[in-house]
């Protein structure tokens, strides 16, 4: 991938909206319900908050940080492995920012399954099929608009 900063932000928001949101709505009922998020409504509130925060923290903190990191690369690119591995620090920060989850392993599994499955689906879409719909995407540094 060869993103620009604005392209990164647009891509993130686009992926969250087109892939992340439907995916979250689909998988939330399949997640185990327990503790603070015992009801389906409570679980939706939590997964949708997570979804929202991935967008907010991503645009305000993560993407500018990645963009800075990219400056140290001669190629001014962002290898697709980075797109996968950056999920780990983002997950850690998000986990600590979500009050509804407690520290039990069950909470951890619920969070991890939702977060990483959403991430991987978005990532897979971004490294390939997105270009079927947006023929100019790869020449525009990830800009959608």
């Amino acid at each position: 991938m060869t993103p620009t900063l604005i392209g990164r932000i647009q891509t993130r928001l686009f992926l969250l909206l087109v892939i992340g949101l439907p995916w979250t709505i689909l998988v939330t009922p399949l997640l185990p319900r327990h503790l603070g998020v015992g009801t389906l409504g409570g679980l939706y509130a939590t997964t949708l908050t997570a979804w929202f925060l991935v967008g907010l923290l991503g645009c305000c903190i993560w993407e500018p940080l990645y963009h800075l990191g990219q400056q140290f690369r001669w190629e001014k690119d962002w290898p697709i492995l980075f797109g996968l591995l950056t999920s780990i620090p983002e997950a850690l920060v998000l986990w600590s920012a979500l009050p509804a989850y407690d520290t039990s392993p069950a909470s951890g599994w619920t969070f991890c399954f939702h977060f990483f499955s959403t991430w991987i689906v978005m990532w897979l879409f971004a490294i390939g099929p997105i270009k079927i719909f947006l023929i100019r995407y790869r020449f525009r540094g990830g800009r959608i608009l």
Partner: peptide, 11 residues
């Protein structure tokens, strides 16, 4: 460099 084809170097 790769960014010249579609990224910040292209811009």
């Amino acid at each position: 460099p790769k960014g010249a084809w579609g990224g910040q170097l292209k811009e």
